[in-house]
Design a protein around this nucleic acid. Sequence first.
DNA 1: CGCTATACTCTCTTAGAGAATATATTCTCG
DNA 2: CGAGAATATATTCTCTAAGAGAGTATAGCG
Lengths: 120, 120
Amino acid sequence: MSQKRDPRDFLPLTDVAFQVMLTLADGPAHGYGVMIEVERRTDGAVKLRPGTLYRAISRLHEAGLLEEAEERPAPEADDERRRYYRLTDLGRRVAAAEARRRTREVEWARDAGLLQPKRA
Amino acid sequence: MSQKRDPRDFLPLTDVAFQVMLTLADGPAHGYGVMIEVERRTDGAVKLRPGTLYRAISRLHEAGLLEEAEERPAPEADDERRRYYRLTDLGRRVAAAEARRRTREVEWARDAGLLQPKRA
DNA sequence: CGCTATACTCTCTTAGAGAATATATTCTCG
DNA sequence: CGAGAATATATTCTCTAAGAGAGTATAGCG
């Protein structure tokens, strides 16, 4: 039992959901941290607003793709208000499937001449 | 004047919009053809419904990313009901920018260990 | 006191899902 | 051959889901 659902049943993920899961794939993080990290990584191009972020998190939580992490950083580096999340096993597989799907999209873009060829 | 807008102002594109533009990047196509082609390329994983497709087309059209093409296939291969579209120059640049953005996402996914490394 | 960090909620608008409408052509079967 | 089914094609409508943006709340820090 437990999880017999096919990761592909969850695809395609929205861009926001994928960004959140990508951040969590590096390890547990808290909501505000995800917000900052996505903005940093995308050079400010993708900006998660609180309404967008927290609702995305709660949807992913309900879908069983992420869960709250109990382990917390050492107290001197922590802030007790934070709520940490991490990907579930299913979540990681879904994120991987979505990454493969997007890889194919990018390859089509390359084939269509929208990108530089892989190696000149 | 004409087009002085930065392609990045249009990002991020939704997945549907990107799929449509990716199809048109191969050359002009008509609505129904795009629908079939996206479904084929994605092995049925992404299914464009009429309501989704035609509204996406009309949004992209209003935004100046695609335009109607006058050239049509030879009459014996044509169907006069069809309406052909093709990317504008701006549209092609926007699609390319989106493709680069998505390339970066996929690279993050790889760095996070969600995908097989580039070359074993 | 005002700023930053943090979480959460509310409303408004946009986008996608899915079904329905319309019509011409082509295919199939009695 | 002719009727009816299926296909090709475009468009519209309503319902739901998702993102935008602003606002609320609170604690700590300089």
